[in-house]
């Protein structure tokens, strides 16, 4: 009888204990991630003295993502032009097409889609690179050469991502507006002047463009931070690295979308 009761209690408490365990694990991970961020930021001074390290990382994150970001931006802009035209022409407001395309791009799609693309293109590469460096003991090797791997390897990558993200997002939005222009004005015959005129009248530099840049800066921090942490925290085996890479992309995507909601509510939800 007593055994049965105990078994029942265990059955009830077990899931609770497991929940508590995973909660604690998540908290511990969060703590490690923040410590890592502190370490990364601690290398800022060193990085300023060796800007060459940064150059290579802007190349890795920024230049290598230009093609995918540009092409995606153009297509997203074209789709916005097409869809916007159908909806707006029902209300006789197709002159507002430019506003719709530009507002969607500058406020939301530019920063968010760019962040998602960078997470997939550059973030996963960062995680894999750091994870492999850990698995092949290159990070320990640096440490044994009295070189701080966080400052030497992670800090330049972090700032490379931070610098590249807003520029890529601006590129995405600009190319997207051109894509919308191409479809709206070029193919569907919206008035050229109205397209840009309305756009300029309704899109505010500080409200829309600057807020978009702030968003993409935040996303730049989040995406590179998650990618670097996952790589640095990966189990140093090939399986661990591949799992970390997947996790980096999934976590960054979720974080970007969730943070985007919060930022949008703060910035535009008056």
């Amino acid at each position: 009888m007593a055994n049965k009761a105990r078994a029942l209690m265990d059955g009830l408490l077990d899931p609770l204990a497991r929940l508590g365990h995973s909660g604690l694990k998540a908290l511990a991970g969060l703590g490690r991630a923040h410590l890592l961020l502190l370490g990364i930021l601690g290398g800022t001074g060193e990085l300023l003295r060796r800007p060459r390290l940064l150059l290579a990382q802007v190349f890795n994150v920024g230049v290598l993502s230009v093609l995918i970001v540009g092409v995606s931006g153009f297509f997203v802009g074209m789709v916005l032009g097409l869809q916007g035209y159908y909806v707006l022409s029902q209300f006789g407001a197709k002159e507002s097409l430019g506003v719709m395309v530009a507002a969607s791009l500058v406020r939301e799609l530019g920063p968010v889609v760019t962040a998602l693309l960078v997470a997939g293109r550059a973030g996963s590469a960062l995680t894999a690179e750091i994870g492999l460096m850990k698995a092949t003991e290159q990070l320990s090797g640096l440490e044994m050469m009295a070189v701080d791997p966080v400052r030497r390897i992670l800090t330049p990558r972090f700032f490379g991502g931070l610098i590249s993200m807003p520029l890529l997002a601006a590129l995405f939005s600009a190319v997207g507006v051109l894509g919308g222009y191409f479809v709206g004005v070029g193919l569907l015959g919206v008035d050229d002047g109205a397209f840009f005129g309305q756009m300029q009248a309704k899109i505010d530099f500080r409200e829309d463009v600057v807020n978009g840049v702030i968003k993409s800066l935040v996303f730049g921090v989040v995406v590179t931070w998650i990618a670097l942490f996952q790589g640095y925290d990966a189990t140093p085996t090939s399986e661990g690295v591949s799992r970390a890479t997947t996790r980096a992309v999934v976590h960054s995507a979720l974080a970007v979308l969730a943070i985007d909601f919060v930022l949008t509510a703060l910035m535009f939800g008056k």
Binding site: P166, L167, L168, A170, L171, S173, Q200, I203, F205, V209
Partner: peptide, 15 residues
């Protein structure tokens, strides 16, 4: 290119 895009957004797209 990034700065040109930002400039475009500032001058052509916004007010």
């Amino acid at each position: 290119a990034g700065f040109v895009a930002l400039f475009f957004l500032a001058m052509q797209v916004s007010n």
